[in-house]
Amino acid sequence: MMPDFTQTGRSEDAASTQNNNVPVVVFKNVSKQYGQISALTDISLAISGGVTGILGMNGAGKSTLFKIIMGKIRPSGGQIRLFGEDPWKNQSPYARTGFVPEHEKMHDWMTAIDFVTTFARLNGMTREEARLEAERVLTFVELADVMNKQIGRFSKGMRQRVKIAHALVNDPDLIVLDEPLQGCDPLARTSIMNVIRELGRLGRTVLVSSHILSEIERITEQIVILHKGRLLAIGNLHAIRDLLDQHPHKIAIRCEQPKRLAKDLIDIDEVTSVSIPAKDELVVETKHFGVVHNLLPSIIVKNNHHVWEIDNPDDNLQSILEYLTGGLP
């Protein structure tokens, strides 16, 4: 995913949607006001290919963002492009998009296969095609064994998968999932995450929103962070972390003789501090994460340190969010 928002100007010409270089979703200075309340302020981003997690607490603007993408509401200001087209002028991008909204009424009395087949037929397929397509997507979400059972008897996780399956009819290039893991038990979560990752691997553009950090971390490293209607960060989470250089990175190492290792590490220019919180643990702080990590293996090996664990306690979404929202640098 290339967060390069200068591309927006070009896509205004009704360019062919076959153009592989056009980012799938582009926002340029998008804002949305509801009376006095600013749901989104000046959002600019470009997303293309793979899985992108849209992260933010409740009220951060995620659902507004999704509604704009899904064409349910118009932005108050700025522009949006899907596959290079303005979706309000030209509905064709939506033919290539599948939505999995947070709340959707499903017909409990229908079987999974009937539900998806009906949907496929509504999209213009013949009975035969619809049936085959329904089977394909239901197999993709691993519901092949139960496709002939009634939806009403499914667990929450299985219902979510049916929803995802029907959004995958016609093999869309953009799939948008709004809180797909909401209310699912851990097993359902794992299978839905697998489906999402698989879609990313196949080259589709997948947008997933959640307010649960650990879930997003398991699904993707590419994230968009929203907070109170503003865009805080966009990109690979490790790269984002790197950019927050006012907060030194921590590296935690568990080894037999931390003091000895500490002596070797403190000599590295880029290391700003070394502390020994426990008799077998060492914590290094540095503003040049990559550099120190580059040197680490050889230092350990050369001086024969016995290390069995290495960790980056603050190279995760939780920490990033805290640093970004938790106060002044």
Binding site: P297, H306, E309, D311
Partner: peptide
């Protein structure tokens, strides 16, 4: 662990996490 770290040193790979 030593094998892993020495291989990493040789390949110039960073081991960001190990457990």
């Amino acid at each position: 662990y030593h094998t892993i770290l020495s291989t990493a040193a040789k390949c110039e790979t960073q081991i960001r996490k190990m457990h």
